[in-house]
């Protein structure tokens, strides 16, 4: 499979004849990063699968109007983040659960997850993450697991770099406290 730059993929996408092929290459290039980003948010594999598919379907619909001066990967991350948050919000509405109960439900899913291969301390870290507010959790995941630059995060989350740094440090403190007390 060819490894093309985003700009090349986008110009291929703008051509009607190579549109499907270009989109297929975009999915192949980003599907894993997007899936793992979503999976860390929704925990369950089946849910992550649905949200990932929806993310790429939305990307397909919006790609024609996509402005090439923006980065394709931050744009995809932005869609994925919004889709994940919407998914969790819908879950709260459907199950009539307050925030804390959804996080508890995710924690239970983590316990029973057949596709979790981490050790005890890794599981504890995931549970600690579920105690955080949604945005802090996203920031922590992007920084800690994906080692993303604050500037890119700033584009994805539409938040200033300073606020993101503060959010990350608060998240680290809370996790540290959780790990010490549990």
């Amino acid at each position: 499979m060819l490894h093309l730059e985003d700009s090349e993929l986008l110009s291929m996408f703008s051509d009607e004849n190579s549109r499907n092929y270009a989109f297929n290459l975009i999915v192949k290039k980003y599907q894993q990063k997007i899936y793992w980003h979503i999976r860390r948010m929704v925990i369950d594999h089946d849910d992550a699968n649905d949200v990932t598919q929806n993310t790429f379907i939305k990307a397909w619909k919006g790609l024609e109007a996509f402005k090439q001066e923006a980065q394709l990967y931050t744009w995809l991350y932005r869609i994925a983040t919004n889709e994940s948050i919407n998914f969790l919000n819908k879950k709260r509405k459907v199950l009539l659960l307050p925030l804390i109960d959804v996080e508890r439900e995710l924690s239970n899913k983590l316990e029973a997850d057949a596709y979790f291969s981490g050790n005890v301390i890794q599981k504890k870290l995931q549970k600690a993450l579920l105690q955080l507010p949604e945005k802090q959790r996203i920031v922590f995941n992007l920084k800690y697991f994906e080692e993303m630059k604050y500037e890119d995060m700033s584009t994805i989350l539409n938040t200033s770099v300073g606020a993101l740094k503060a959010s990350y440090h608060i998240a680290v403190k809370k996790i540290e406290e959780y790990l010490k007390s549990h």
Binding site: N20, F23, N24, V27, K28, Q31, Q32, Y35, W36, R39, R40, H45, N49, T52, Q53, F56, I57, W60, D113, Y115, F116, S117, G118, N119, I121, Q122, K123, L125, Q126, Y144, F145, E147, V172, I175, E176, L179
Partner: peptide
């Protein structure tokens, strides 16, 4: 946190990413 490291503890079913691409293409 430093001792835990940032390895991904989650897994996916075998060949999942090959089928994901096809599922997305089918839905589109």
């Amino acid at each position: 946190l430093h001792s835990i490291g940032n390895e991904n503890p989650f897994r996916v079913p075998e060949n999942y990413f090959d089928t994901l691409r096809i599922s997305i293409a089918d839905k589109i």
